[in-house]
Design a protein around this nucleic acid. Structure first.
Lengths: 153, 153
DNA sequence: AGAAGTTAGTTGAATGTTAAACGAGGCCCT
DNA sequence: AGGGCCTCGTTTAACATTCAACTAACTTCT
């Protein structure tokens, strides 16, 4: 039965502030991108990762990993992005199972415009409202979290 | 055209660590609750808020606010919870438009069991892998974020 | 009182996500 | 070569979420 170690009051307060804030922050980002650029946050994330990759393309599995999405979800989302003309999929020369997702010029253009607004929102609701030291702490903390989760598997 | 203030390298790193970590953390929590207790994370959140309310009940709008969900979403989710027998809805004496969501005894029992596992997961992947000072920083930071978002409207 | 405007909550349709199953190709071993 | 096993990406159907429309009830103003 084994009683768990419950969080103390301060830990609980901090954890909840995070849970709450992160949900609301997500909503804001999503709403903002959708209304101004017709992109959902996950779609935006995909475009970002592609834009940073060499030749602006990535294998589906890599892209899924970078964008923290399931493969299935990525597959669906890419289909949508493809039908909007922001991404094209092509086959992979050395591995015939493989598929490259490639950011189109239009995709890049949309992303460039979206990123301008996005960074303003990130500042307005996150970076510029918190202490720089706290931002660094967040960076450290979530880097540990990501590492911990990666180890799990 | 008004060039935005882009994030510097450190800010970008920290922001991304957070985005990445929070997505993955959510997935872990959700998967864990689902597999062990048949609850999604949003469902769990609803039960928690109800359990803490006086008489274990809240008006739909308050509950939506506490659980950071849209009213529509809450309505659907509550229907599901109701059909599982974890929640019942009843009418509100003074405001006839109003509806109370009320945690059932079974809902409370399910929550109690789920919470034990949940806190372990929260510790294993979050609280116990980060520095206590960083946790405090997270608390401060996201409290500001929530406040900032609340002011927006 | 009663018209106009607000707020509470739900609904249904469109959209997005998840979970499981699948086909196709690669890899390794004998 | 070919059997067994793994990975790649997609597909389908079930499920959850969003968005806009809606009813009912409260409020305000005259």
């Amino acid at each position: 039965m084994d009683e768990p170690r419950w969080l103390d009051a301060a830990q609980q307060r901090d954890w909840r502030a995070y849970v709450d804030g992160s949900i609301r922050l997500n909503e804001i980002m999503d709403r903002d991108l959708k209304s101004k650029h017709g992109l959902s946050l996950p779609e935006y994330e995909i475009l970002v990762r592609l834009s940073e990759a060499p030749e602006r393309r990535l294998r589906m599995a890599e892209l899924a990993e970078h964008a923290s999405q399931s493969r299935s979800r990525l597959s669906h989302t890419c289909s949508r992005l493809e039908s909007k003309g922001l991404v094209v999929r092509g086959s992979c020369p050395n591995d015939k199972r493989g598929v490259y997702a490639h950011l189109t010029d239009e995709g890049f253009a949309v992303l460039e415009r979206a990123a301008r607004d996005h960074v303003r929102t990130v500042r307005a609701f996150f970076v510029d409202v918190i202490d720089p030291d706290d931002l660094a702490a967040i960076g450290r903390a979530f880097t540990s979290v990501v590492k911990r989760i990666a180890e799990e598997n």
